[in-house]
Write a protein that binds this DNA or RNA. Structure first.
Length: 558
RNA sequence: UGGGGUGUAGCCAAGUGGUAAGGCAGCGGGUUUUGAUCCCGCCAUGCGCAGGUUCGAUCCCUGCCACCCCAACCA
């Protein structure tokens, strides 16, 4: 099966790597994908995964899968497993390069003692509040801590006692001694170690002292021999600190940090805080709710790894703020599935049609291609009998201009079958159309056009006696505003939740061949869109399909 | 008001001191038993604004403007 060839335009990071390879600065490149295991991965992470893992496939090199687990308070093994599954599903293999920042805790600690020995780090024994006040503001310089000039011996002793658990949380911290009046606030003696008497998901109770991100990340990169450390724009201000730490210590190499802009996708949210809130407050069923922009949600919804890769290629890599249309993502899955998906007919909102000239005991076995453009994929059986279902909105008593479907007295083609004419419209007491009586033209089977008339419309249908009932879940965007919350003073994104983001249709009818549908395969329900079995809720005797995305519809009417 | 970034079409995004790639969207037309797909064509005298240098500037220089990020013992 062919997947779409991604459009490859170059970007500044690829250019840098090419130059480094050509100049001989590096023989191969090493990257890393470093999530904190405190939430599920989302499509923004996918952008980073495709970048980091993709680059090393494109050039020679390898990529580390590294968990940045320096803050045991928020982290959890559940997230670790979910993240590994997601990265793997996207198509990447880290081989034996699965690491954790916590693997380096001892080495990091030793480096810290080294810093102290050099007089480049000190133990501060002030309260968190004092440290914050002394940091200064954006426009005012910071002031020195009274503990800044402690002796090396005292610093070392205190630091060792911090490690051995003699002090309570918050009693002391270790700070890098850099520059309290730097215009870059990150350089005003940043805290690099804090006491946290909590159990770490990997190291247990071995440590009660945990290193901070800025100190940990650069050293982990250096220890792994990372050549290019790719991160998002908000870390740009941290780069001087990244470089400072590595410059002080005897490390194997000095990776280059390069920043790119994070993904912003309209009609959804991509911040961990907000995604957690959606899950915890029950606005969605779970992390893998098919409306979620998480990788697991997209997977359950029916998105393919190939479609997400296409998306990553399309949006590109740059340093500019971006605001991607949701339609770009939707178009990627359409493009991928168009060639892959077997075709089927399904009626979501059924309207009964009786074919008057079809005897009650008549059953005709028609068939149709699995995929019209790929005849070698075979054919599927399509039974026809006297009673069929068509889509409710494929009939209109009072049609708008340009309506190509069925109208009273009019003709339409049943897809893969005959042309029918509507003879009679049956309504219930309230005036609602509940049944159509039609006659079919037996001389209009496959490949045969009706004589002397043009039939423009084609509608899908299923045989009532043969159809399989199923529940179908129609999904729409989770939020009704492109930038959720932006119109409210408190930026409350929940107020923009789309109340119609999921519609459940429990009376849908499927062509009988769909009884063989498999989880993980997307089907095109002709004229409607792409659908797949819900991996959680579908059962063999009660099928549940998710709508992945609609087909494009250039007809504005309805 | 300090520091760090970014501004190329509706949305992304290449690009170069020599006259603006590509994708998505949009528009027009063709094919079609999916109003899908597919095919063809159109779509920036313009690169945030104003000056300057130059034969020539989106690119170099100067000055502005707008937006984003930074004052966790988060990452």
């Amino acid at each position: 099966m062919s997947s779409p060839e991604p459009v490859r335009s170059t970007h500044f990071i690829r250019n840098i790597i090419q130059e480094d390879l050509q100049s001989g600065k590096h023989q191969e490149i090493v990257t890393r994908f470093p999530p904190e295991p405190n939430g599920y991965l989302h499509i923004g992470h996918a952008k980073s995964i495709f970048l980091n893992f993709g680059l090393v496939q494109e050039f020679t090199g390898h990529c580390f899968m590294r968990f940045d687990d320096t803050n045991p308070i928020n982290e959890d093994e559940e997230y670790v497993q979910a993240i590994l599954e997601d990265v793997h599903w996207l198509g990447f293999d880290w081989q034996d390069r699965l690491t954790h920042a916590s693997d380096y805790f001892q080495r990091l600690y030793d480096f810290a003692e080294d810093l102290i020995q050099q007089g480049r780090a000190y133990v501060d024994s002030q309260s968190q509040e004092s440290i914050r006040e002394q940091r200064g503001t954006l426009t005012e310089p910071g002031t020195a801590s009274p503990f800044r000039e402690r002796s090396t011996a005292e610093n070392l002793e205190l630091f060792r006692r911090m490690k051995s658990g003699e002090f309570e949380d918050g009693a002391h911290v270790l700070r890098a001694k850099i520059d309290m009046v730097s215009p870059n606030i990150n350089l005003r003696d940043p805290v690099i170690y804090r006491i946290r008497k909590v159990t770490h998901q990997r190291t247990g109770n071995k440590w009660c002292l945990y290193p901070m991100y800025d100190y940990t990340h650069c050293l982990s990169d250096a220890l792994e021999g990372i050549t290019h450390s790719l991160c998002t724009l908000e870390f740009e201000d941290h780069r001087p600190l990244y470089d400072w730490v590595l410059d002080q210590l005897d490390v194997p190499c000095h990776p280059r940090q390069i920043e790119f802009s994070r993904l912003n996708l309209q009609y959804t949210v991509l911040s961990k805080r907000r995604l957690i809130q959606l899950v915890e407050e029950g606005h969605v069923s779970d992390w893998d709710d098919p409306r979620m922009p998480t990788i697991s949600g997209l997977r359950r919804r029916g998105y393919t790894p190939e479609s997400l890769k296409l998306f990553a290629e399309r949006i590109g890599i740059s340093k500019a703020e971006n605001n991607i249309y949701m339609s770009v993502l939707e178009d990627c899955i359409r493009e991928d599935l168009h060639s892959k998906a077997p075709r089927a007919m399904a009626v979501l909102r059924p309207l009964k049609v009786v074919l008057l000239n079809c005897p009650e005991d008549q059953e005709e076995e028609l068939d149709a291609p699995v995929h019209q453009q790929f005849p070698d994929r075979g054919r599927r059986p399509i039974p026809l009998s006297r009673e069929i279902f068509i889509e409710e909105d494929d009939f209109d008593e009072d049609p708008p201009e340009g309506f190509h479907r069925l109208v009273p007295g009019g003709e339409v083609r049943l897809r893969n079958a005959y042309v029918i004419r509507c003879e009679e419209v049956i309504k219930d007491a309230s005036g609602k159309v509940i049944e159509l009586r039609c006659i079919y033209d037996p001389n209009t089977s496959r490949g045969r056009k009706p004589e002397g008339r043009k039939v423009k419309g084609i509608i899908h249908w299923v045989s009532a006696a043969h159809a399989v009932q199923a529940e179908i879940r129609l999904y729409d965007r989770l939020f009704s505003q492109p930038t959720p919350g932006s119109d409210y003073p408190d930026k409350n994104f929940l107020l923009d939740l789309n109340p119609n983001s999921m519609e459940i249709l429990s009376q849908a009818w499927l062509e009988p061949n769909l009884i063989n549908a498999e989880v993980g395969i997307a089907y095109q329900f002709e004229r409607l869109g792409y659908f797949c079995l819900d991996s959680r809720d579908s059962k063999t005797d009660s099928l549940v399909f998710n709508r992945i995305v609609t087909l494009r519809d250039s007809w504005g009417g309805k």
